[in-house]
Amino acid sequence: MNWSAFILRRLLQMIPTLLGVVLLVFFLFNWVGGDPAYLLAGKMASPEDIANIRHQLGLDRSVVYQLWVFVKQIVTGDFGLSWATREPVSHIFRTRLGPSLTLLVPMLVLETGVAVSLALLVAALRGQWLDRTLMVTSTVVMSISLLVYIIVGQYVFASLLGWFPVKGWSDDLWRNLTSYAVLPILLGLFVSVAPSLRLYRTFILDEIHQDYVRTARARGFSERRILLVHVLRNAAIPIVTNVLMGLPGLLTGAFLLERFFAIPGIGREIIMAVERSDFPVIKAATVYVAVATLLANLLADMLYRALDPRVSLEGKQDD
């Protein structure tokens, strides 16, 4: 079986999943979300106003028709206007994606690099004091909320020492990367490296106890070579999978970091939309995240298969 057949089959398999997501989102908003006309009209609205709004939104049409509209919105990518700001929803997502990625792409790259390097180091020194100290430290670091780091970081490094701006954003990518994004990236790293380090250390230690490592030692290769060539290439398989599973997170942005550092990203936009019951934005975000998750899973699966020669493109079918 070749790659195109594999990808095509996986894309076809996504259709029922996506249909499920669409139906779930649609009915949740229709039945659980309350009548959007009441929310829009405000407290002082007359029954006529509400009926008017219902008509404008198409809420007086049949459920089937509304579902059809929703599906059309998804396929065309046109979710209409935000109820709160009258800004086209597609424009919101297009313009907010840049700041989110400016923040999160460097964070993901740095996190992976730092976590893998540290994991290799502590795996080589397993059981020794540095290993134990780092493991205890990461547990402590993990146990404190990001909120604490944000507030302390903004106070100490931005306000007291003045190394970074407290918050803000510009239109210049380079300026953002060198000034505004630095502190949020560092604080985000501080929290995200610790769990990854612990996880990757386990992946590497799992490999170190495999028989092929014993063979490599018996063949007289150095410990350094065994770790960096034989073990790392095998541990890369779960590590890469884990990194890719985190990709959909890029789309939703870092809610807290964007909010506290006033970065106009998608994460902040979603929080505001929830606060304002801005249904079109929330609906669009939900669908986008679902699609992104499915695509990231497909990408992870493809890379997994590319990295591990043992996994074939054929799926064995159970009877």
Binding site: D211, T215, R219, N234, L307
Partner: peptide, 29 residues
């Protein structure tokens, strides 16, 4: 080790590195 004295093991499947072709593993030594 690996020069004057060599060793083979019980489980050939797990004793070889699964992600490298056998030629590459031979060539390494």
């Amino acid at each position: 080790r690996g020069r004057e004295m060599a060793m083979i093991f019980q489980e050939p499947m797990t004793s070889l590195n699964p992600v490298f072709p056998v030629g590459a593993q031979l060539m390494e030594g």
